[in-house]
Simulated assay, not measured.
Amino acid sequence: MADTTVKIDPAVRDRLMVLAREHGMTMRDYLAELVGATPTLEERRKRYEETKAYCETHFGVTLTDEDHDRVEKVWRELEAGEPVDSL
């Protein structure tokens, strides 16, 4: 496997090293695992469509675009530490 150099801020590099060590890994292996576990936008869209189809097939639940938008809003509020209305 060919190596590639990636330029990052020294603070980010140091944090990556700490995280890798805490997981008993090299930075290379830790980054590979992190990147491999992080889905792309297209992978998330596909997972959403598959989950939506599963819910419709197995639970008789039809999710609308408005339902999706509401859930996205709730997630943003939760991540921001804001109060959230019930779904």
Score class of each variant (00 low, 15 high):
Asp3Phe: 10
Glu82Asn: 02
His23Met: 10
Met27Val: 15
Val18His: 11
Glu42Ala: 14
Asp29Ser: 01
Val12Asp: 14
Ala53Thr: 01
Glu77Ser: 04
Trp75Thr: 02
Met25Trp: 15
Val61Phe: 04
Met1Thr: 03
Arg45Asp: 15
Val12Ala: 11
Pro39Arg: 08
Arg47Gly: 07
Thr62Ser: 03
Thr26Met: 08
Pro83Arg: 04
Gly81Asp: 09
Met27Pro: 13
Glu66Lys: 05
Gly60Ala: 08
Met25Asn: 05
Asp9Met: 08
Leu16Thr: 05
Ala2Arg: 04
Val84Leu: 11
Val35Pro: 12
Leu63Asp: 00
Ala11Met: 11
Leu63Tyr: 09
Asp14Cys: 07
Leu63Arg: 00
Phe59Asp: 05
Pro10Lys: 09
Asp9Ala: 07
Pro10Ile: 03
Val74His: 00
Gly36Pro: 05
Thr62Gly: 08
Glu77Val: 00
Arg47Ile: 00
Ala20Pro: 07
Gly60Gln: 01
Thr40Val: 07
Glu43Ile: 01
Thr4Leu: 12
Lys73Tyr: 05
Arg47Phe: 07
Tyr54Ile: 00
Leu34Glu: 14
Gly81Cys: 04
Leu16Gln: 14
Thr62Lys: 13
Glu72Phe: 06
His68Gln: 13
Leu16His: 13
Val12Cys: 13
Thr40His: 08
Thr51Lys: 13
Pro39Gly: 08
Glu33His: 12
Gly24Leu: 06
Val35Lys: 13
Ala53Glu: 11
Asp3Glu: 12
Glu66Cys: 01
Gly24Cys: 03
Asp85Met: 00
Glu42Met: 09
Pro83Gln: 10
Gly24Ile: 06
Thr26Glu: 11
Arg44Met: 14
Ala53Ile: 02
Val6Ala: 14
Glu77Cys: 09
Thr51Phe: 13
Thr38Ile: 06
Trp75Asn: 04
Glu33Gly: 06
Leu31Gly: 07
Arg15Thr: 05
Ala11Gly: 15
Arg44Gly: 01
Pro39Phe: 06
Ala80Met: 03
Lys73Thr: 06
Thr57Ala: 15
Val6Trp: 15
Gly36Arg: 05
Met17Arg: 15
Glu66Ile: 00
Ala80Trp: 07
Val35His: 12
Arg28His: 13
Ala11Ile: 06
Leu31Asn: 01
Lys46Thr: 06
Glu33Ala: 14
Met25Gly: 12
Arg44Gln: 14
Glu43Thr: 01
Thr38Cys: 15
Asp29Trp: 05
Glu66Gln: 12
Leu31Met: 10
Thr57Phe: 09
Thr57Asn: 09
Ala20Tyr: 11
Pro10Ala: 04
Ala80Glu: 10
Val35Arg: 11
Ala37Lys: 13
His23Leu: 08
Arg70Asp: 04
Leu34Met: 12
Arg21Val: 02
Arg15Phe: 15
Arg15Asn: 14
Pro83Tyr: 05
His68Leu: 12
Val12Pro: 12
Glu79Trp: 14
Thr51Met: 15
Pro83Trp: 09
Arg15Pro: 08
Gly36Ile: 03
Pro10Val: 02
Thr4Met: 11
Gly60Met: 07
Glu22His: 09
Glu82Trp: 00
Tyr30Ile: 00
Ser86His: 08
Asp65Gly: 07
Val61Tyr: 10
Tyr48Gln: 06
Asp69Pro: 04
Pro39His: 11
Glu43Lys: 08
Ala2Glu: 07
Glu33Asn: 08
Asp65Trp: 04
Met1Gln: 01
Cys55Phe: 15
Glu50Ala: 03
Asp9Gln: 09
Glu33Phe: 14
Glu33Val: 09
Phe59Gln: 01
